[in-house]
Write a protein that binds this DNA or RNA. Structure first.
Length: 670
RNA sequence: GCGCCCGUAGCUCAGCUGGAUAGAGCGACUGGCUACGAACCAGUAGGUCGGGAGUUCGACUCUCUCCGGGCGCACCA
């Protein structure tokens, strides 16, 4: 409702300015006034025009207000302060629109839907190296990505979710080295180990977590001579993995696939699902690079360097670099090494051409992991038929941490250089800062923390060092904590034993997801159990609790939210309930509820889910406030009771919807 | 050396394309449960928005500079 009125106000204002001053402004600054007494919508446009029109802002504002007249949805306009133009909404009309059934549905491609609807988007997130357990840093990635997917879908976009699997990289090679050479095991042993872990209900990703840390340490723990040999072993192993069709690669395939399954299971606990898992092995074996290389040479993005330190390499100019014609660019990015092998960025360019459907090649597809409602596919050299098709998206979003912004910029630069400017413009590096541990948390976990690290505000998590909090451990810990709370409160009555575990899980996941989403993307999260295990204040459970409170009202009143909204529509007159000191907080709640579409559009256009997290919290806060002040069930005036019930109904509807966009369930009881 | 990010209340963070008196949560202190269950609510204290200069009618927001912290800048992935 709010977004719609905002647009109408802007349009009307624009036409007034055109008629009155012959001014044609592209954008008109709007703001939400600091207090409700100033109205619900305001513009400081008069300040801007003061110089141009050689008049005082107050005079201009008054002239504009006079010209605005009256139109639907607005109660009136006024000049305030030094020249603000404040718009007061027609509250009763606003309530009617907001309560309306049409507005309660997820905005689809229709009137009022965001401009971005109808786009085919591709979101890549999670992308954990399949050589160890997922940790809290990966959780931030996956939760941000999954939430953004939900937001895009809510905005009417068709979204494919991809999780890129680097199954032939050094990280997997390291675990294989550890397995074959450090532990002296074989391919047959790998099969045995997987069976054994399965039978004992143990986690292969946990096993690899330790092995990876051990191997990483092993590379540098011998004599210089030994270390040299170990390093060689490492690169030989890596090449065997890239090559494929050998026993080492088979071990890698076995272990990495098992770890990958574990990652999918971990993410499923958080309600995170994927459509497709493209793997690096297929990008290599299906020779994606060869096709990309031709295009890159043809368009002149890549050139062969004949001199300097990059002699013998195919290189590209870095973004922003200004090199005079004919000058040697030593700073160029190497894409093909002098030995003919391609670098990571090169492979990434090929992969991204595929994402936009510009490569002229496709993966093979095989089903890999079944969700209740759909199948997740994985890349294969020779796929199954029939299969869905992925790639060929109009817009892509890569959820990758901020440290990789340079390589990401290189890929975008390459696309632009090849003439794919539209695609480059719709390529979003959805970057976010890392999750680190507070020194206190690290000590608590029993890690050796140096004096130097103790003095820091936070310490970076490192899979290589085995330093971090594993995702499943954290989830387990959260569930234990929420279960204790649920039991202490006897949620659902003394005999509701069965349901309590489910509720505890819903609350635990809600707490975790909200915790990862409340921070804006570019702030480093210094992880601490105290904060993450908190269920009070600005947390997921706080919002879930507001939902439960609202539901309890309808349960006790023996009615439903939907029925009460219909009843409100039948009420001839309720404007009186929206006026006066006592009603301000009620109107504030309606107004907040009406801002949903605006918030959604903001989140999508800025790639920032945190705004929705904040919106949901504020909505819950205003509802709790309302809940406390106005006792609904004892209200004697039937019309007012209907109005109050409808208010709770809208709050409930909006809270549940906002939580669902955040990937958080709304429990029936708490 | 070059590039990016951050610095706002004791702590953790919001602050939309510059706009009205800089907000929230936690922590501290005070008060409120025989209410629609207190995972809640009300109140108090707490800020030279890292320092300085500039642009502007107006700067937490833009520019420059300095200080402090973090992360990138491979023929590694």
């Amino acid at each position: 409702m709010y977004l719609e009125l905002q647009k109408r106000f802007t349009e009307h204002l624009r036409s007034v300015l055109a008629a009155k001053y012959d001014l044609h402004l592209e954008t008109i600054p709007l703001e939400i006034p600091p207090e409700l007494k100033f109205g619900e919508l305001a513009t400081p446009i008069a300040f801007e025009l003061a110089r141009k029109l050689r008049k005082a802002p107050k005079v201009i504002a008054a002239e504009i207000v006079a010209a605005l007249g009256h139109f639907d949805g607005f109660a009136g306009f006024e000049v305030a302060g030094a020249g603000y133009i404040n718009a007061h909404l027609d509250r009763a009309a606003g309530v009617r629109t907001t309560a309306g059934v049409a507005d309660s549905q997820v905005p689809d491609a229709g009137p009022g839907a965001p401009a971005s609807s109808g786009i085919h988007a591709l979101v890549e997130h999670t992308s954990i190296n399949p050589n160890k357990a997922a940790h809290i840093g990966h959780l931030r990635n996956a939760i941000l990505g999954d939430t953004f997917v939900r937001l895009l879908r809510a905005a009417g976009q068709k979204v494919d979710v991809q999780n890129y699997i680097d199954n032939t990289g050094v990280q997997v090679a390291d675990v294989v080295v550890g397995f074959l050479h450090l532990e002296g095991k074989s391919l047959a042993d790998a099969r045995l180990l997987l069976d054994e872990l399965k039978q004992k209900d143990q986690r292969i990703d946990y096993y690899c977590w330790d092995l990876y840390a051990k191997t990483s340490q092993w590379y540098t723990s011998g004599t210089d001579e030994e270390n040299e040999a170990r390093k060689k072993l490492r690169y030989d192993t890596l090449h065997e993995l890239e090559q494929g069709c050998n026993e080492t690669a088979e071990v890698a395939e076995l272990i990495s696939t098992a770890v990958l399954r574990r990652h999918l299971e971990t993410m499923l606990r958080l309600d995170i699902e994927y459509d497709f898992l493209p793997r690096e092995s297929e990008i290599l074996h299906l020779k994606f690079w060869e096709s990309a290389f031709e295009q890159l040479k043809k368009t002149g993005v890549l050139y062969f360097e004949n001199e300097g330190k990059n002699k013998g390499c195919w290189v590209m100019t870095r973004p922003g670099a200004e090199i005079a014609e004919g000058d040697l660019n030593e700073d160029a990015k190497v894409i093909v090494r002098s030995n003919g092998t391609v670098t990571y960025v090169g492979k990434d360019i090929a992969y991204h051409l595929w994402k936009f459907g510009l490569l002229g090649k496709d993966f093979g597809y095989k089903p890999f992991f079944s969700y209740p409602n759909h199948e997740c596919w994985i890349s294969a050299e020779k796929g199954d038929e029939p299969h869905p098709h992925f790639g060929g998206a109009q817009a892509i979003y890569n959820v990758i941490d901020a440290r990789q912004s340079d390589p990401q910029a290189n890929v975008i630069q390459a696309l632009r250089g090849m003439g794919y400017t539209e695609q480059a413009d719709r390529y979003t590096h959805f970057s976010y800062e890392m999750v680190a541990l507070t020194p206190r948390c690290a000590v608590e976990l029993g890690y050796d923390v140096s004096e130097e690290d103790l003095a820091r505000p936070y310490i970076e998590v490192s899979g290589r060092k085995g330093f971090g909090v594993k995702a499943d451990d954290l989830i387990d810990k959260l569930i234990v904590a929420t279960r204790a709370e649920v039991d202490a409160r006897q949620t659902g009555g003394a005999d509701a034993e069965a349901g309590r575990q489910k509720i505890a899980e819903q609350i635990a996941i809600g707490a975790l997801r909200y915790f990862m989403l409340k921070f804006t993307r570019n702030s480093v999260i210094a992880f601490d159990f105290k904060d993450a295990l908190s269920f009070e204040g600005e947390t997921g459970p706080y919002i879930q609790y507001a939902v439960v409170r609202a539901r309890n009202i309808f349960r006790k009143a023996e009615t439903t939210a939907e029925a009460e909204l219909v009843k409100l529509a039948g009420l001839a007159e309720f404007g009186a309930f929206l006026d006066g000191e006592d009603a301000e907080d009620i109107w504030a709640l309606w107004l907040r509820a009406a801002r949903r579409t605006l918030v959604l559009e903001q989140c999508v256009s800025t790639s920032e889910p945190a705004y929705l997290a904040k919106h949901a919290f504020q909505l819950a806060q205003e509802f709790n406030n309302f809940y406390h002040k106005h006792h609904i069930l004892t209200e004697e005036d039937p019309a007012r009771k209907t109005f109050l019930l409808a208010t709770a109904a809208v709050a409930l509807r909006e809270l549940v919807l906002a939580l669902s966009w955040l990937g958080i369930e709304s429990p029936e009881a708490m």
